[in-house]
Amino acid sequence: MTKGTLNFSTSKLFPVFTLLAILPIWEVMVRMFEIPNFLLPAPSSIYQAFIAVDPSRWAIHLWATLRVAILGFCLSLVISLPLAIFMVKSKFLAKTLYPILVIIQSTPVIAIAPLLVVIMGAGEAPRLAITCLITFFPLVVSATTGMMSTPEELIELSKSLKASAVKEVWHIRLPYAVPHIFSGMKVAITLAIIGAVVAEFVAAEQGLGYFVQFSTSYFKIPQAFAALLLLSTLSLLLFKTVQLIQYLFFRWSLPKDKF
């Protein structure tokens, strides 16, 4: 047991080591080949750009993006779970809705974004809608697949106890789908950041995506890089949060070797 845990925590640190190893190489390369700042800024100049911006300004942009990403993700979750339940319980709905979902999914959200802004105005609504659209598909598909993969015998057990359809979904199908839903959520939460950034590219006056665009238009490339790194960190943290929620509340649903 102890050995297992030890291996687990050191292997977790490997990506950190890799990053720490890359930074000095990056710095040296940029200096050695005199790569101009607007092509690839050195880590040191990114850091300088980062501290040059007032923390409260960072906070405002960070919060704007985070807010849209989380709200959009939650909205998507609230829509997709009931939808998945209806599709599992009704063959008719599954047959009619699924093709529509696939069509929506195959339309590039980036192309719909300007339209949504025109339709919904320049407020937060189109940003939420875009985030919702982009995170929606993995959530519906994972929830549907999970509920459909419930063994027939469990459904029969439920039937033999004369349980209602609501009970069957709530106590058997949904819990059975939890591991699938979490896989879907891990994909969706990172897509949510992408959705929020895309929305900011189209119409926004705040947010890290907006800040990247704003910085590049003034040729402040190191500053754009700093915002970019912040975005990746944010995305990673959200992903880890989903993982943590699964670990804390649905530990049984984790892959068995992680026990």
Binding site: P151, E153, E156, V178, W252
Partner: peptide, 19 residues
């Protein structure tokens, strides 16, 4: 016509709830 509550079933596959 419908499942009876006084019937107990042991299925061919063990069907336990993993959670």
């Amino acid at each position: 016509a419908a499942p009876q509550l006084n019937t107990g079933i042991v299925f061919q596959k063990p069907t336990l709830l993993p959670w």
